[in-house]
Design a protein around this nucleic acid. Structure first.
Length: 489
RNA sequence: GGUGCGGUGGCGAAGUGGCUAACGCUGUGGACUGCAAAUCCGCCAUUCGUCGGUUCAAAUCCGACCCGCACCUCCA
């Protein structure tokens, strides 16, 4: 069973551990989703793509994955923004949830099993807070409810900090109504003009951390397998979630805590507060979603990933190489059937190479989702495929043994790329249907025939003019022994 | 101040005790081509931040130092 080889880095233990879910065949996973007051930026896109890839790999291994990702649609920043735009805050949040899906879908991020929203879980949240109050972990002051950090003895176990450490470096002003500086709000009393809900403590709204504890409990239970999010969520967000959930349930919240590293710009974190962020949709004006996905997966998810235009260009070229290999594979597969032309040792050698590559891919992913290495395996596959194609050479026909192997290669190629969420086939279809105008295609074919005439006359000035000008229009011609190959770029 | 992460070729990036330090981009030599493009076959780090130490053997372990980043406040 390949399932057994998977190892993941757990922030809780600070090391890689063998992955063993609570249930043998099912993985329950929770990822902290966005606060929806703006379009998502590239930094937000990283965990989306990374953890979507984690999910895909788990599914590939045969697990049923229950994947929950929340939307924070009740929040200070949403309220502020809504005020500026003079619209109800929930309406604003709903708008950006729609926009979120537009971006996530473009990146080929699978929809979660459930995308719960804070605004739709007030009753659950209030019950959760109430439970903490009743158990003595929380106290009420003037309509606010605070979690008393001192009561939870394991506080700090995720971020590996003690309360003393935290207090020593405290940069936040201490609210004198709190018993401890580290105490955090579970419920906040309503302020003038803010959306609020009725609760046992008066009108108010939830604190930030409580939503994830509540919703993960609701959809995944007291204990689940994976909790994921950005590195910056370790403290205080996830630390506080642990405190809330484990205080209430007296059970470990999540078995594995996964955190992705940041996107940086000039070595500095890309963030909304620094203002150095790039909206995903602005980048999508220039690069295909596949390129962005490729770029995001080209570095291990826990490492920082620096962003600049050149890196996307490199990603574009790399992806292009994978796509070209796939395209050539398809082309060869479309050839006529004939006699096998390769020696059986060659066929066998290629078959063995395929197995080896698949093995490498799995080992890479098994090692804490090493997508950079997995991509390297795909490049090896591309080279192998191209080599095989070359060895089939200019033959017009392909034998049945060879065809079988090509078929197998194609399946494997699609399967492995699919784990990374890269859709080789779809992109290919787009290329030839981009204009989806029969007229354009006919005109191009016509120009190609004219060019061939010129070439036959050795009028290379004319033929090169046609090729160069078409290139300027985004149409690439390639001369091959079998004739002209063309495509849109 | 506390806590954590990282420094590998021109660039990006794997590798964490032992075969020739993956893979991609760039550059470059060759094959193919009328020329290209694509593809294929080569080449491009005696060296892994610095200095010590452990070991038969270290980029990989240990110590010190230098540098960069992040968290401790909303942030993926």
């Amino acid at each position: 069973m390949i399932k057994e080889g998977l190892r993941v880095f757990n922030t809780l233990s600070g090391q890689k551990e063998q992955f063993l879910p609570l249930e043998a065949a099912r993985v329950k996973m929770y990822t902290c989703g966005p606060t929806t007051y703006n379009f998502i930026h590239l930094g937000n896109a990283r965990p989306l793509v990374v953890f979507d890839t984690v999910r895909r790999y788990l599914e590939y291994l045969g697990y049923e994955v229950i994947y929950i990702q929340n939307f924070t649609d009740v929040d200070d920043k949403i309220i502020k923004r809504a005020r500026e735009e003079k619209m109800p805050s929930l309406e604003l949040a709903a708008k950006y949830i729609r926009e979120y899906f537009a971006d996530a879908d473009a990146l080929n991020v699978k929809r979660a099993t459930v995308h719960p929203k804070v605004s739709e879980h007030m009753g659950d949240i209030i019950n959760f807070v109430d439970g903490l109050v009743k158990k003595g972990y929380a106290y009420v002051v003037d309509g606010d409810v605070y979690f008393e950090v001192n009561k939870f003895k394991e506080y700090g176990k995720l971020s590996k900090r003690t309360l003393d450490d935290l207090q020593a470096g405290a940069r936040v002003e201490v609210d004198s109504r709190k018993r401890q500086p580290g105490d955090f709000a579970l419920w906040k009393a309503a302020k003038e003009g803010e959306p609020s809900w009725n609760s046992p403590w008066g009108q108010g709204r939830p604190g930030w951390h409580i939503e994830c504890s509540t919703m993960s409990t609701k959809y995944l239970g007291s204990s689940f397998d994976i909790h994921a999010g950005g590195l910056d969520l370790i403290f205080p967000h996830h630390e506080n979630e642990i405190a809330q959930s484990e205080a209430l349930h007296a059970a470990p919240m999540a078995k594995y805590w996964l955190h992705n590293g940041f996107i940086t710009i000039n070595e500095e974190k890309m963030s909304k507060s620094l203002g150095n962020f790039f909206l995903l949709r602005d980048i999508l004006q220039q690069y295909s979603p596949q390129v962005i996905r490729f770029y995001l997966l080209s570095t291990h998810y826990r490492s920082p990933l620096d962003f600049d235009d050149q890196k996307l260009q490199v990603a574009e070229k790399g992806l292009e190489r994978l796509l070209t290999a796939f395209r050539l594979l398809e082309e060869t597969k479309g050839k006529q059937r004939g006699e096998d032309s390769l020696f059986s040792e060659d066929l066998q050698g290629f078959g063995e190479e395929l197995s080896k590559i698949k093995q490498q891919f799995r080992e890479a992913m098994n090692d804490d989702f090493n997508t950079a290495l997995a991509l390297a395996a795909l490049f090896d596959l591309a080279r192998a495929v191209n080599g095989f194609n070359t060895s089939l050479g200019g033959r017009a026909a392909v034998g049945s043994q060879e065809m079988l192997l090509l078929q197998k290669t194609e399946e494997m190629y699609l399967e492995l790329a699919g784990i990374l969420g890269l859709e080789l086939a779809e992109k290919n279809q787009n290329q030839n249907q981009k204009e989806d105008s029969g007229l354009a295609n006919s005109l191009i074919e016509l120009l190609i025939r004219v060019r061939q005439e010129a070439r036959n006359r050795k009028d290379y000035q004319t033929s090169d003019l046609i090729r160069d000008d078409l290139k300027g229009l985004g149409i690439v011609l390639e001369d091959t022994p079998q004739g002209v190959r063309w495509r849109f770029v």
